[in-house]
Design a protein around this nucleic acid. Structure first.
Lengths: 191, 191
DNA sequence: ACCTGAACACCGTTCAAGT
DNA sequence: ACCTGAACACCGTTCAAGT
């Protein structure tokens, strides 16, 4: 099955919406602005997605699917589990490198109270994917037993998310690196 | 100097705005809703604060001032620095206990790109106050030397912020406790 | 199938007008 | 000094109308 040779309209919308949501969140995702970036009118968006909620859910779903795929690629390219764990923060660093953007899931987690249920589900899936991958590698690296894997995996995920948030607040990617470095020295991540 | 016996109008506005911003952020702070909670019309808010930006800046300023005062109280009541560090996550836990709300500064840090400069300044002050207090106690507890205090303090602040965010996303305060527990086991916080 | 202009009830904000 | 209704340009959304 060959891929579509050209990006579909819906894909263009999802791509632009992802970038906007990573910088402004769900509430800050303006449909008139989004439409303008894609080259259509706001009303036309409703031909592709029934509502802003469904659009955001589609964005969040693709976001965790892409993240899951990227983590699998990382695993495939990195045989050593401890190495995988060392490289994990790099996936969060990439967002900051991309115009000081942040994880879409973290931003929307903050917006929890205003999030439609269909979006909440996909946002939680992002955390689940990351935690599962971290847990698997923590066990494989012999850092924790399988009994404690999920708990430790969640701690790493939360800590790295927090580091990204703090670094964004200073527009300082070196602060992100320093925070991750501290996590290593403290023993949360393998040295 | 005696305090005002009754809460002033501006105080009522700041109080209500703080609660709203902790749940919905700067963008989600609706002036008509805020005014209704205080018992006035949206237009009347402009008699107390020149703009939404200035209102939010006043909210954020009081927020970090109150946090600084609370940390000083904690220090005064807790002679042992390591004990202070053990109790630090409790200040973030309190927000979750309060209807699953989160730190106003964390929420607004996510909203960085849409934040007026006057608000950004106060939000950063919140982080500074927490990091300074943590650093002081890390040194006093003999956990790190003064050279590494700020770096480690930032790591704790970022990690605890991330734990609060993740727990809010699940409306699960026990998850927050488990994450903090993991930070202790890993060695980021004193056992 | 896909797009649009115009309309709706909602936002932050202003301002003239009230007490 | 403090409040208000009405208006402004902006939001998400709908819908009748176009190709």
């Amino acid at each position: 099955m060959a891929n579509q040779e050209s990006t579909s309209s819906s894909d263009k919308i999802l791509l632009a919406a992802t970038r906007i949501a990573q910088a402004h969140g769900y509430g800050g995702l303006n449909l008139r602005t989004l439409a303008q970036e894609v080259g259509i009118k706001a009303a036309s968006l409703y031909h592709h997605f029934p509502s802003k909620a469904d659009l955001a859910a589609a964005v969040a779903k693709r976001y965790w699917e892409d993240a899951a795929a990227a983590l699998e690629v990382l695993s495939a390219k990195t045989p050593d589990a401890a190495d995988c764990l060392r490289k994990f923060p790099g996936t969060f660093r990439a967002s900051l490198e991309n115009d000081n953007r942040m994880c879409l899931a973290s931003f929307m987690t903050a917006e929890y109270d205003d999030l439609p249920d269909v979006v909440k589900i996909e946002i939680q899936a992002f955390a689940d994917v990351n935690v599962a991958w971290l847990g698997k590698n923590l066990v494989a690296a012999g850092i924790v037993g399988s009994r404690d894997a999920k708990k430790r995996a969640r701690a790493i995920f939360a800590a790295v998310s927090g580091a990204q948030l703090m670094a964004r607040g200073r527009s300082d990617i070196k602060l992100f690196d320093a925070l991750i470095d501290s996590y290593r020295s403290a023993g949360l991540l393998p040295e």
